[in-house]
Simulated assay, not measured.
Amino acid sequence: MTSLATVVARWRWLVLAVVLLVVATVLLLAGNQLLALKARLADEPLAVRAVVIAVGLAVLAAAGWGVWRTLRMPARPARDEVVPDEAGLRARAATWAEAGADVAAVRTELDELDRRREAGSVHVAVFGTVSSGKSALIRALAPGAAADSDVLGGTTRDVVHYEWQDVRGDRLVLTDMPGLSDPAAGLDRTATDEAGRADVVVFVAEGDLTREEWRALDAVRALDKPLVVALNKADRYEPSDREAIRARLGERFGASTEIVPVIAGGTETVIIRDSDGHEREEERERLPDVRRLRRVLQRVVDRDGLSAGRDRAVLLLAARKLEGAVQAHRRDAAEALVSRYARRAVVGAMAAVAPGSDLVIQ
């Protein structure tokens, strides 16, 4: 369940618009009353007028403070969901399956959790917006991986896994996911769910984050698992600008979030000056640099309790899907009940206009 503070923070501009609309409406409706009050106060002692003015200023100050708080309230990830007991969740899913609910998605999540536990590998979800360089980063981390990337954006349409073994022999599975804000329906949900199943999340950004990226990062942080922000195309920024971006991210997320400049590779446009002084543009391959990211991932993988965060996130994901399946089952049952009684009502109404209808209705 999302807290009130999180809802207000996420929709604070809409809340502000509603508040301003309500205030404007109240002011318009109270206009005549204010004029009448002014006329009455003209004959009152100075002390009475001072008290009324003070109360009015206090109300205005309180309203202004409320608007300021709405604008300044930081977006905090929701952490008020209770992680369900795994055995109880599996039993509840079985019970609702017997009742006719479609719990296939829940069983898929639990089966995948079992499979990853048995494999003993570490899943690293590469997360980010369209064309941020996710696929190129995977190719740089795991040379030979055939993940497609396209400058037009949105090439990655499915969740694709690539294996990578680090220098210590740990087996990592890099997950290339659909980009956020892709026009294709449902991709954001797919990417978010896969991030929940992962042990570590790498969020790829090209620089200072957009509003959509901030929102996506808040959602990932709510999963309560290791998060690494990879600032791609870091060579395009001056060192001072790069540090300013890292400082802003650090203020927002604290020391628990690793912020790593990277160069995922790809191509770049350079200006070539010929011997005769003419200039021309030329596309060149950009050499990747992910050495620091490799070291950070190695350090994260070596932490104790890494799989516990994954298990919690998957159980929460499965519980939400079970709740959705239960609600859908109840809704379908209610609609079927209404439809059945509606048909009976129609038959009764038609019989009521025919001879002997009282016997039919009975």
Rank of each mutant, 00 (worst) to 15 (best):
L293T: 09
R197W: 03
G128T: 06
L231F: 08
V59L: 15
D208R: 12
G144D: 13
I245Q: 10
S181P: 02
L306N: 01
I263N: 11
A145I: 11
T129C: 10
W11K: 12
R236G: 14
R236A: 13
G207F: 10
T25M: 13
A63N: 08
R115K: 10
V22M: 09
A97I: 01
A78R: 00
P178T: 07
A216N: 10
P288R: 12
L249G: 03
E283P: 04
T190I: 10
V55K: 02
V204C: 07
G66I: 10
A234Q: 08
W68S: 01
L89R: 00
N232A: 10
K38C: 09
V18W: 07
E98K: 02
A142N: 00
A9T: 02
V130Y: 06
I259E: 02
A318W: 02
R92K: 11
E323A: 14
E109F: 01
K233L: 08
R236L: 14
A313Q: 03
G154M: 10
L16E: 11
G64R: 01
D188Y: 04
D182Y: 06
L46P: 00
A75T: 12
L46N: 02
A319F: 04
T192D: 09
A42Y: 11
A191G: 14
V103N: 00
R197Q: 12
Q298Y: 07
E194L: 04
R171M: 05
L21I: 10
S181G: 12
A234T: 10
E268Y: 05
A351L: 14
R107L: 11
A39D: 11
N32F: 08
E194P: 03
T190F: 05
I271T: 15
G356T: 06
A97C: 01
D241N: 05
D43M: 06
A185D: 14
Y341W: 15
T6G: 14
V296C: 08
V55C: 12
Y237H: 11
P45H: 05
L37Q: 14
F253L: 14
R168N: 12
G120K: 00
A345S: 11
L337A: 14
S240W: 05
